[in-house]
């Protein structure tokens, strides 16, 4: 019975001691210790977060680099393609032009040849005519020096020309 009856004096002193202890420890022990632990945890957390951020930034940077590299590569590709196209175009243009020029020259040459040919023909015709007249003159002269022959000729001509 005595064992389970709280003694008044001990209750009194326990209340006082406990309250003092709670107050002192709260102020001088729990607050600094918990504060230090929390600070450290926060520090670790923020360090981890910043490491994570740095990693992400690194990744971003890498991705950026990759992107820029890709862009540059694409640009180079495009430029090369353009250059090739321009080259091809220039070549084909030059070819066309040359072709045209050549055609023109051929045409001109052909025209010149044609006109030369025509004038040569004309000359030839003229000379042939002159020569034929000369020949005819000479023949006629020779023929007409002989009366028989003249008559014969006339006769053959007339026979050729009869009944026409």
């Amino acid at each position: 019975m005595d064992l389970v009856t709280p003694g008044f004096g001990l209750v009194f002193w326990t209340i006082i001691t406990f309250l003092c202890l709670l107050f002192i420890l709260r102020k001088f022990a729990w607050k600094p210790i918990l504060g230090a632990v929390e600070d450290r945890e926060n520090g670790i957390k923020s360090a981890l977060a910043s490491a994570e951020n740095a990693r992400k930034e690194m990744e971003n940077l890498k991705a950026d680099n990759e992107r820029i590299l890709n862009e540059a590569r694409a640009e180079r590709e495009a430029m090369l393609k353009d250059a090739r196209e321009i080259k091809n175009k220039m070549i084909s243009d030059a070819k066309d032009q040359a072709q045209e020029q050549a055609n023109k020259m051929i045409e001109q040459a052909q025209a010149a040849i044609e006109s030369e040919k025509k004038s040569a023909m004309l000359e030839l015709k003229k000379q042939v005519a002159e020569i034929s007249i000369d020949i005819a003159e000479k023949v006629v002269r020779e023929e007409l020096s002989n009366k028989d022959k003249q008559l014969k000729l006339v006769e053959s001509m007339l026979s050729d020309a009869k009944l026409n």
Partner: peptide, 20 residues
Amino acid sequence: LILLFVTAARSYNKSEGNVP
């Protein structure tokens, strides 16, 4: 208790970066 924990709490101030 007071000696133990107040000493422990003090040691945080002395150490760098709250290392116990």
